[in-house]
Design a binder for these strands. Structure first.
Lengths: 93, 93
DNA sequence: TTCTATTGTTCGGTATTTGTGAACTAAGGA
DNA sequence: TCCTTAGTTCACAAATACCGAACAATAGAA
């Protein structure tokens, strides 16, 4: 759960949930309109991956990540929705 | 949100929810069976208080804290339940 | 193949955050 | 008043996160 405690990771997950086809690091930082070094972005993705929140696979030169919706909903019903709803309410959008 | 990202604070909230009449710092650490210095416990309580998750009031020499259920549920419907459920599942109990 | 461009990871140093003990405040009772 | 218990504040230590540089992996062009 610690994975979802960071505001940057929450915003990444929020973006990923909008994109059925997944996102890579570069595209993510561009959508978040933040100047985050790729090393930092990579670390956030690693944490999300290791905690089972996202799944990544290589497509040529890039690594595309998606939220693991089904697995998350069965392990922690309603959790992601609640956290993201609360987060969005506090951060506008 | 950051207030509920720490495992110790989550366990404090979990204990508080069991106690209708509230808890103080000393009683909390004793129930959690952890050797946490009072300064650390005080900091965790301060964060929970400042983020509006708990409310504290003095009763003689001690400070009794309770979860602000109604306020939380109206601000973040379902959030606390979901987080605590997930947390309990991952930490036994 | 070799060169180049793009994406992402790893590593080491630095900066930020968190935890802790000591000193202090607050309150009640002897 | 003095003593005890509960909690806070503060300054420093420990742990964690961030970031740039070097590296690895892949693809396409020369």
């Amino acid at each position: 759960m610690h994975a979802l405690s960071d505001p940057v990771r929450l915003s990444i997950v929020a973006e990923l949930r909008k994109c059925e086809e997944g996102l890579n690091c570069v595209e993510t930082t561009s959508r978040l309109k933040c100047t985050m070094p790729k090393s930092t972005c990579s670390q956030h993705y690693r944490i999300l991956r290791e905690s089972g929140i996202i799944h990544s696979e290589r497509r040529g030169v890039e690594l595309t990540s998606k939220v693991r919706r089904k697995e998350l909903d069965s392990r922690f019903p309603g959790l992601l929705d609640s956290i993201l709803k609360a987060w969005k309410r506090e951060h506008g959008e």
